[in-house]
Design a protein around this nucleic acid. Structure first.
Lengths: 195, 195
DNA sequence: ACACCTTATGCACAAAGGTGCATATGCGTC
DNA sequence: GACGCATATGCACCTTTGTGCATAAGGTGT
């Protein structure tokens, strides 16, 4: 039921169409919650069935008609009710960590390349969050309604920075253990009759 | 297909029963990948059907017989193949961030209480990882096969620290209204200078 | 005596999430 | 003129994850 609540959370800002929501899930809230348009349209139908949102059709020419969804009082209440329950901490669930866990059984060069790509990705993310922060909240303060967005961006920065630093550390440790890993690779090559 | 690979990753260490795997998923690998015993048993059946693991029954008295699962060469190859693909960065998907996003629509006192509980949780996690690190890798180095586990714990520490600091910042900003917080930034600088 | 925890496995059903495909049109570009 | 892109919505299928329940024996606590 979390995606539904994320959609309701988006609609507290302003009424939106499914298409606009999908774009929002590609930028602001999507930084920490991914969902494609199919998921969103499906969830919107459910929310409408429950009476948590109301759809209003807007006739357009040239483009297909659009459905603008508005949060109903029931939807707002449902969101509030959901938000009052204690949240459960999410686990990281990152493929990379599974590979690290089974380091002896994977190809180290591919893993290193992967970490390098990730390093770049997380650096991009970090500077992106920092840019948005600097632009939207140049003095580090926010009106109360936007405070959560500011804090989310701050968490984004902290998180990406932590991962960036870790990637750097990991690359260093994986290359300084090169002699060891050659031995491992020779052993593996022998086992598989390959490379 | 990720849970299956996480199980294969576990079995690179040693053969295990479903029960042992469930316990492992409650501790070491479970720090970043949650799975309960039902999921694990189900996934083990699939892996057995695919020939990635082999089950051997061990007759016991007093307790139900157990099935010890061993990684097959095919399973090891499948894991290696999976690990060679580029990983995709996971998104955070934390309920708390959705609530923060819709700050104006939620009960602030409940949210604050929630963040306080989370703060405690992440502090616990952090010190737990630090304790394990100090115990298993007292000199900060590891034999190659265990390097990944060391690095995973390090990421755990970095991650939890980032979240802990963020929770503190969030609590401060939520109680003081909208006013920030040279205090926070000074605290940050001090902490980072210390590291 | 009774409740509860640990060991050990698993089914059935429901909810949530992901992938591919389908439709319809206008606008810019190669 | 063909091609992709933005707008705008949605179905069908499949995988993954979560919840509740069932079985079975021995040990530990109150």
């Amino acid at each position: 039921m979390a995606l539904g609540d994320a959609i309701l959370a988006c609609l507290t800002e302003r009424p939106m169409t499914g298409y606009e929501l999908a774009k929002t899930f590609d930028t602001s809230i999507g930084f920490f919650w991914k969902a494609d348009h199919q998921q969103i349209y499906r969830e919107l139908s459910k929310l409408r069935d429950r009476g948590h949102v109301q759809a209003r059709e807007v006739v357009q020419t040239g483009k297909p008609n659009k459905l603008v969804y508005t949060l109903t009082p029931e939807g707002r209440a449902a969101l509030k009710h959901w938000a009052a329950r204690p949240s459960r901490p999410a686990s990281i669930k990152d493929d990379l960590l599974v590979r690290m866990f089974a380091l002896e059984a994977v190809d180290i060069d591919a893993l290193r390349a992967d970490i390098m790509a990730r390093l770049e990705h997380h650096r991009d993310r970090q500077s992106r969050y920092e840019r948005i922060l600097a632009k939207r909240f140049p003095d580090g303060t926010a009106p109360h309604a936007d405070l959560g967005k500011l804090l989310n961006l701050r968490l984004g920065v902290r998180h990406e920075r932590a991962v960036v630093e870790w990637c750097e550390e990991a690359l260093e440790m994986l290359s300084s253990g090169a002699e060891v890993s050659n031995v491992t690779r020779i052993g593996e090559a022998a086992r598989e009759g390959k490379i």
